[in-house]
């Protein structure tokens, strides 16, 4: 039974709290690097690293749970035979400043990597993680998480959720590990006053009114259950897809991967898992160059239907979390919002 708790953390106590947390485990937060880019990355020095809670991290949580490349096993081939051994265990890690969309994506990944059996590497990392989210008071330019039901604030799924009230954070525990942290470090916090709740609610309403984009995600999901997408739409989109895979790599819910063995020497090697993208021309190609999908017409079909049609059928929810990263990265201009707008406007 999770004992739900809500507390207030004054802003000047944030760094002291994070310092305590970092002593106990690895700490990941949005950090501005020397190039001026904000990325979720490991905090090495809490006093020198610049934690940036104002901008959207360019990366999502994905790479921390499904790394771009990871070792699934080591193998050896020698006189004793062909043997495999498991990789090292993950480290306890606290993630701070995670946006609502990115935690929603992680909850989706929990589902994907639990069937038919739990993926050992993924769940090793997941079980050793604590996720502290930050609700968005001011959605970013391409965000549409309200349309995907994954923000700007969350109702569940987080260990702790921080909401910026101006001079303090409204902190809510959603899971056992979050509640444990609040109890353990209770002297950093004060109790919630009625005024704090009023401000929080007011900020929530304002945040919902600040979205620049109105993307008809649920209308698209419903329409996809009823009718086929016109071939001309697929062809237009495919014609502007340059097979760079950028959308799949920045997407927090694109989890397709490849597995390859890499020889280290004649008798040793590693089994590597790496990100893959269904938009890539080699994704479905078999030995002998036979390919069951026609990329010239359908480069993006699987990507969009998977997120908006098939996942909606299977899980009752689209697997786009409205983070807007693919909008930023696609230089062909054929991101998921383009598709949704073309399809929902199409009167066929």
């Amino acid at each position: 039974m999770i004992d739900l708790q809500e507390m207030i953390l004054e802003k000047d106590r944030l760094i002291p709290l994070l310092r305590k947390l970092k002593k106990e485990s690895r700490l990941i937060a949005p950090v501005t690097n020397k190039h001026g880019d904000t990325l979720l990355s490991e905090i090495n020095n809490i006093d020198r690293d610049t934690i940036d809670l104002d901008r959207q991290p360019q990366n999502s949580l994905k790479s921390f749970f499904l790394p771009q490349q990871e070792i699934l096993a080591h193998y050896s081939v020698d006189t004793t035979g062909y043997n495999f051994t498991a990789p090292e265990a993950a480290k306890e890690t606290i993630y701070f400043g995670v946006r609502s969309c990115d935690l929603t994506a992680l909850l989706y990944m929990d589902l994907i990597f639990s069937k038919p059996a739990k993926d050992a590497s993924y769940y090793d990392r997941r079980n050793r993680s604590v996720i502290i989210t930050l609700g968005c008071n001011d959605p970013f330019a391409n965000c549409f998480c309200e349309a995907t039901n994954s923000g700007p604030y969350l109702d569940y799924g987080y260990d702790l959720q921080f909401i910026d009230l101006g001079s303090s954070y409204y902190v809510a525990a959603g899971r056992r590990k979050g509640a444990d942290l609040l109890n353990k470090w209770d002297y950093f916090f004060r109790t919630v006053e009625e005024e704090d709740q009023k401000i929080r609610y007011q900020l929530f309403l304002e945040a919902r009114g600040r979205f620049n984009r109105n993307i008809q995600v649920s209308h698209a999901c419903h329409k996809l259950q009823e009718e086929e997408v016109a071939e001309t739409i697929w062809e237009k989109l495919a014609g502007r897809c340059y097979d760079c895979g950028g959308c799949a790599y920045v997407c927090p819910t694109c989890t397709c991967f490849s597995v390859d063995d890499m020889a280290i020497d004649d008798s040793h090697g590693t089994r590597i898992r790496s990100w893959d993208a269904c938009t890539s021309s080699g994704f479905t190609r078999m030995a002998g160059n036979h390919n069951p999908t026609d990329r010239t017409r359908h480069a993006l079909k699987q990507r969009f239907l998977h997120k908006l049609k098939y996942d909606y059928q299977k899980h009752g929810k689209a697997s786009c979390t409205g983070c807007g990263r693919c909008v930023d990265i696609c230089f062909g201009g054929v991101d998921i919002t383009t598709f949704i707008e073309m399809f929902t406007r199409d009167a066929s």
């Binding site: 990597f113 397709c256 991967f257």
Partner: peptide, 24 residues
């Protein structure tokens, strides 16, 4: 049906077939 597959367990995504996965 024959498809390119990497996991066999319904996670890698390579054998997609109109909302189904050939491996499972």
């Amino acid at each position: 049906l024959e498809r390119h597959m990497k996991c066999g367990m319904g996670t890698c995504g390579h054998c997609h077939l109109d909302g189904k996965l050939v491996c499972v």
